[in-house]
Simulated assay, not measured.
Amino acid sequence: MYKLERTLLERSLNTIWAFVICGVLLGGYSVQFLKHELPCPLCLLQRLSMIGVAMGPLLNLRFGIYPAHYAVSILSALFGGFVSLRQISLHICPGFSSFGEPVLGLELYTWALVVFACSVFVSAIMLFLHTTSPQHIQKTQMNTFENMGFWLVLFMTAANVITIFQECGLSACTG
Protein backbone atom coordinates (compact mmCIF):
# COMPACT_ATOMS: atom_id res chain seq x y z
CA MET A 1 0.00 0.00 0.00
CA TYR A 2 2.84 2.38 0.86
CA LYS A 3 4.44 1.90 -2.59
CA LEU A 4 1.12 2.61 -4.34
CA GLU A 5 0.57 5.81 -2.31
CA ARG A 6 4.12 6.95 -3.04
CA THR A 7 3.65 6.31 -6.77
CA LEU A 8 0.37 8.25 -6.75
CA LEU A 9 2.12 11.12 -4.96
CA GLU A 10 4.92 11.15 -7.54
CA ARG A 11 2.44 11.09 -10.42
CA SER A 12 0.38 13.88 -8.88
CA LEU A 13 3.47 16.03 -8.28
CA ASN A 14 4.60 15.45 -11.88
CA THR A 15 1.17 16.55 -13.12
CA ILE A 16 1.18 19.66 -10.93
CA TRP A 17 4.69 20.48 -12.14
CA ALA A 18 3.52 20.28 -15.77
CA PHE A 19 0.58 22.58 -14.94
CA VAL A 20 2.89 25.13 -13.28
CA ILE A 21 5.21 25.25 -16.29
CA CYS A 22 2.19 25.69 -18.56
CA GLY A 23 0.98 28.50 -16.31
CA VAL A 24 4.30 30.27 -16.79
CA LEU A 25 4.06 29.79 -20.56
CA LEU A 26 0.49 31.10 -20.53
CA GLY A 27 1.76 34.15 -18.64
CA GLY A 28 4.28 34.77 -21.42
CA TYR A 29 1.56 34.43 -24.02
CA SER A 30 -0.67 36.84 -22.14
CA VAL A 31 2.11 39.45 -22.20
CA GLN A 32 2.65 38.76 -25.89
CA PHE A 33 -0.97 39.05 -26.95
CA LEU A 34 -2.50 41.42 -24.39
CA LYS A 35 0.38 43.92 -24.35
CA HIS A 36 1.40 43.30 -27.97
CA GLU A 37 5.04 42.62 -27.10
CA LEU A 38 6.66 40.13 -29.42
CA PRO A 39 9.22 37.83 -27.76
CA CYS A 40 12.85 38.22 -28.74
CA PRO A 41 14.93 35.23 -29.90
CA LEU A 42 16.26 34.69 -26.36
CA CYS A 43 12.68 34.67 -25.03
CA LEU A 44 11.77 32.06 -27.65
CA LEU A 45 14.69 29.90 -26.48
CA GLN A 46 13.48 30.27 -22.89
CA ARG A 47 9.99 29.15 -23.93
CA LEU A 48 11.49 26.17 -25.72
CA SER A 49 13.46 25.32 -22.58
CA MET A 50 10.31 25.49 -20.46
CA ILE A 51 8.62 23.07 -22.83
CA GLY A 52 11.68 20.82 -22.40
CA VAL A 53 11.31 21.08 -18.61
CA ALA A 54 7.66 20.03 -18.93
CA MET A 55 8.64 17.03 -21.07
CA GLY A 56 10.24 15.28 -18.07
CA PRO A 57 6.99 15.11 -16.10
CA LEU A 58 5.08 14.15 -19.25
CA LEU A 59 7.45 11.29 -19.95
CA ASN A 60 6.99 10.14 -16.34
CA LEU A 61 3.22 10.20 -16.69
CA ARG A 62 3.17 8.42 -20.02
CA PHE A 63 5.96 5.83 -19.70
CA GLY A 64 6.43 5.43 -15.95
CA ILE A 65 8.71 7.26 -13.56
CA TYR A 66 12.39 6.98 -14.46
CA PRO A 67 15.32 9.09 -13.28
CA ALA A 68 16.30 9.71 -16.93
CA HIS A 69 13.06 11.64 -17.42
CA TYR A 70 14.08 14.01 -14.66
CA ALA A 71 17.41 14.43 -16.47
CA VAL A 72 15.49 15.80 -19.47
CA SER A 73 13.99 18.46 -17.21
CA ILE A 74 17.32 19.26 -15.55
CA LEU A 75 19.18 19.63 -18.85
CA SER A 76 16.39 21.80 -20.28
CA ALA A 77 16.36 23.94 -17.14
CA LEU A 78 20.14 24.36 -17.28
CA PHE A 79 20.02 25.43 -20.92
CA GLY A 80 17.14 27.82 -20.21
CA GLY A 81 18.97 29.17 -17.17
CA PHE A 82 22.04 29.95 -19.26
CA VAL A 83 19.87 31.72 -21.85
CA SER A 84 18.19 33.71 -19.06
CA LEU A 85 21.57 34.66 -17.59
CA ARG A 86 22.68 35.80 -21.04
CA GLN A 87 19.64 38.02 -21.38
CA ILE A 88 20.03 39.39 -17.86
CA SER A 89 23.67 40.22 -18.58
CA LEU A 90 22.64 42.08 -21.75
CA HIS A 91 20.19 44.28 -19.83
CA ILE A 92 22.13 44.83 -16.64
CA CYS A 93 24.51 47.39 -18.13
CA PRO A 94 23.86 51.00 -17.14
CA GLY A 95 22.00 52.97 -19.77
CA PHE A 96 20.71 49.86 -21.53
CA SER A 97 16.93 49.76 -21.65
CA SER A 98 15.02 46.82 -20.26
CA PHE A 99 12.65 44.74 -22.35
CA GLY A 100 8.96 44.94 -21.49
CA GLU A 101 7.35 45.90 -18.22
CA PRO A 102 8.49 44.34 -14.94
CA VAL A 103 6.20 41.86 -13.18
CA LEU A 104 6.34 42.16 -9.40
CA GLY A 105 9.51 44.21 -9.79
CA LEU A 106 11.41 41.72 -11.96
CA GLU A 107 11.78 41.43 -15.72
CA LEU A 108 10.30 38.35 -17.41
CA TYR A 109 13.75 36.97 -18.23
CA THR A 110 14.69 37.21 -14.56
CA TRP A 111 11.52 35.35 -13.64
CA ALA A 112 12.48 32.73 -16.23
CA LEU A 113 15.80 32.21 -14.41
CA VAL A 114 13.86 31.74 -11.14
CA VAL A 115 11.58 29.18 -12.84
CA PHE A 116 14.56 27.26 -14.23
CA ALA A 117 16.34 27.25 -10.85
CA CYS A 118 13.15 26.02 -9.17
CA SER A 119 12.82 23.32 -11.85
CA VAL A 120 16.27 21.96 -11.04
CA PHE A 121 15.33 22.01 -7.35
CA VAL A 122 12.01 20.23 -8.02
CA SER A 123 13.83 17.62 -10.12
CA ALA A 124 16.22 16.94 -7.25
CA ILE A 125 13.34 16.61 -4.75
CA MET A 126 11.49 14.27 -7.11
CA LEU A 127 14.62 12.14 -7.47
CA PHE A 128 14.81 11.92 -3.67
CA LEU A 129 11.17 10.77 -3.58
CA HIS A 130 11.77 8.17 -6.26
CA THR A 131 12.78 4.88 -4.67
CA THR A 132 11.38 2.29 -7.06
CA SER A 133 13.83 0.56 -9.34
CA PRO A 134 12.90 0.65 -13.05
CA GLN A 135 12.32 -3.13 -13.10
CA HIS A 136 9.44 -2.78 -10.61
CA ILE A 137 7.65 0.14 -12.21
CA GLN A 138 4.23 -0.75 -13.48
CA LYS A 139 2.89 1.35 -16.29
CA THR A 140 -0.52 2.68 -15.30
CA GLN A 141 -3.23 4.44 -17.21
CA MET A 142 -3.27 8.21 -16.85
CA ASN A 143 -6.25 9.56 -14.93
CA THR A 144 -8.24 12.63 -16.03
CA PHE A 145 -6.05 15.10 -14.13
CA GLU A 146 -2.89 13.65 -15.66
CA ASN A 147 -4.46 13.61 -19.13
CA MET A 148 -5.37 17.29 -18.74
CA GLY A 149 -1.75 18.10 -17.87
CA PHE A 150 -0.48 16.01 -20.77
CA TRP A 151 -2.74 17.67 -23.33
CA LEU A 152 -2.10 21.15 -21.92
CA VAL A 153 1.65 20.75 -22.42
CA LEU A 154 1.10 19.45 -25.94
CA PHE A 155 -1.24 22.36 -26.68
CA MET A 156 1.33 24.85 -25.36
CA THR A 157 4.00 23.22 -27.52
CA ALA A 158 1.81 23.49 -30.62
CA ALA A 159 0.94 27.10 -29.75
CA ASN A 160 4.64 27.87 -29.42
CA VAL A 161 5.39 26.39 -32.84
CA ILE A 162 2.53 28.35 -34.44
CA THR A 163 3.48 31.68 -32.85
CA ILE A 164 7.15 31.23 -33.79
CA PHE A 165 6.19 30.59 -37.41
CA GLN A 166 3.84 33.57 -37.24
CA GLU A 167 6.58 35.83 -35.86
CA CYS A 168 9.60 34.54 -37.78
CA GLY A 169 8.07 32.97 -40.87
CA LEU A 170 9.19 29.85 -42.65
CA SER A 171 12.37 31.53 -43.87
CA ALA A 172 13.76 31.43 -40.29
CA CYS A 173 13.81 27.63 -40.48
CA THR A 174 15.61 27.41 -43.79
CA GLY A 175 18.39 29.82 -42.93
Rank of each mutant, 00 (worst) to 15 (best):
T174Q: 13
E167Q: 15
V72D: 04
N143K: 01
F121P: 01
G169D: 03
S97Q: 06
C40W: 08
C173M: 07
Q32A: 11
M156P: 04
Y70C: 03
C22T: 10
P67Q: 15
W151A: 13
I137T: 00
T144F: 12
I162T: 11
H69M: 07
C173A: 12
E101M: 08
Y2E: 15
A159I: 06
N143A: 14
R11D: 03
L8K: 15
V83T: 01
F33E: 05
W17Q: 04
V153G: 02
E167D: 10
Y66C: 15
R11V: 02
T15G: 12
L108Q: 06
F116G: 00
I92R: 02
S171P: 09
I16V: 14
G81M: 01
A68R: 10
P134S: 06
L8F: 15
I162S: 07
A68F: 11
E146V: 01
S76V: 10
K139D: 14
H91K: 10
P41K: 13
L34N: 15
A112N: 00
Q32E: 15
M148C: 14
L170V: 13
E5H: 07
L34C: 15
S49C: 11
V122P: 00
V122A: 07
I51Q: 00
S49N: 07
R11K: 07
L104M: 08
T157A: 05
L104W: 09
G27E: 05
L34W: 13
G175H: 08
S97A: 13
K3M: 15
M148E: 11
E146W: 02
I16N: 10
